[in-house]
């Protein structure tokens, strides 16, 4: 093992030896279980699905012709109608596990992000609060390398939590609604047409895109905790960003502050660019969004590494 790998291993040992980490795992397990139990009825598909969909399709058609229904709702309904008509036509039964696992975003994801932000925020500041930073630093290892190992270990932990979370959704979804849904094609709309895609790869594409935001938040929390050595501040600010960041940014933008479109939280959701779609905000493209993300990432990293390298450790 190279030195950096050993250092990352050390950090992983610390994270996964903490009782708190395993409490988080237990929480995650409990949340997914609750989601499956209390959502059971709404995800469960009836054997009569065809007759039910035919009926729903007629209602949707009617709604689409009704001038009183708002346009936005119509757009949703028309997509649903297309997919459901395709289902009936091609005899592709809807499966509960697919809907359940994709709803990871509404249940397990926030919990996963909260846990990861806690881990990121504790990584450096807890070494200071425990006093262990001194014995950690008096080793023949460059400070930069120690901090890089800490950052990479947080990323490894994040991947672990995301995979665990998705794994729990697939496992419990499979148990509750049947594993055959894993191989049933997932129906989505691409360029105005219904297409069949592989469900698992669709799921991971979704999760992967939401990880962009998570990595940015983790890097932000890591920076705050390194610069201010205060894990509460890091957790608080990054959670605020997670829950409120895009809403607040959009409101400031809408209030006429044009430059807000280059702010972090307006650019973290890259899924808006999927399937050749464009951003609601004028002038934003995948290219500009990626540039904004890279610049923020670099600023966070440089701030962390410069302060860590220079800091006097006097505790």
């Amino acid at each position: 093992m190279g030195l950096l790998m050993k250092l990352i291993h050390n950090e992983n040992v610390k994270t996964f030896s903490r009782i708190g980490t395993w409490i988080m795992v237990a929480f995650l397990f409990g949340t997914v279980l609750m989601h499956a139990i209390f959502g059971y009825d709404s995800y469960k598909q009836s054997p009569n699905w065809k007759a039910e969909l035919v009926k729903q399709n007629q209602e949707d058609l009617k709604a689409l012709q009704d001038p009183k229904v708002p346009e936005e709702e119509k757009a949703n309904k028309s997509e649903r109608l297309m997919i459901n008509q395709y289902r009936v036509e091609k005899d592709i039964a809807p499966t509960g596990v697919q809907f359940f696992a994709l709803d990871y975003k509404m249940g397990g994801e926030s919990l996963t992000v909260i846990f990861i932000l806690i881990v990121a925020a504790m990584s450096v500041s807890s070494e200071f609060s425990m006093g262990t930073i001194k014995l950690l630093m008096i080793r023949p290892v460059n400070r930069m390398k120690i901090l890089l190992a800490k950052y990479l270990s947080v990323i490894v932990t994040a991947i672990f939590f995301v995979l665990l979370s998705i794994g729990l959704y697939l496992l419990m979804g499979g148990i509750a609604f049947g594993f055959e849904g894993f191989t049933t094609p997932y129906l989505t709309i691409l360029k105005g047409k219904v297409v069949e895609v592989n469900f698992i790869s669709h799921l991971f594409q979704n999760v992967g895109l939401s990880c962009v935001q998570m990595v940015m938040l983790v890097t932000f929390a890591f920076m705050i905790s390194t610069v201010f050595r205060n894990s509460s501040l890091a957790i608080g600010l990054s959670l605020l960003g997670y829950f409120m960041g895009s809403i607040i940014s959009f409101q400031i933008y809408a209030a006429g502050y044009e430059w807000m479109k280059y702010s972090l939280f307006i650019n973290t959701d890259l899924s808006i660019y999927l399937d050749d779609r464009v951003s609601m905000i004028e002038g934003l493209t995948l290219g500009t969004s990626l540039t904004v993300l890279v610049i923020h990432f670099l600023v966070f990293m440089i701030a962390s590494f410069v302060t860590f390298q220079k800091r006097d450790i006097a505790i």
């Binding site: 050993k6 250092l7 291993h9 050390n10 040992v13 610390k14 030896s17 903490r18 009782i19 425990m130 006093g131 262990t132 001194k134 014995l135 008096i138 080793r139 023949p140 290892v141 505790i315």
Partner: peptide
């Protein structure tokens, strides 16, 4: 060295602590 107090990771065993430091020196 030891500076100020011998602060180590309390949630680890003494041995695991030593293993951490062992990995940091060639």
């Amino acid at each position: 060295g030891i500076v100020e107090n011998p602060d180590m990771y309390k949630f680890l065993t003494g041995y695991k602590n030593l293993e951490l430091y062992a990995r940091m020196s060639p």
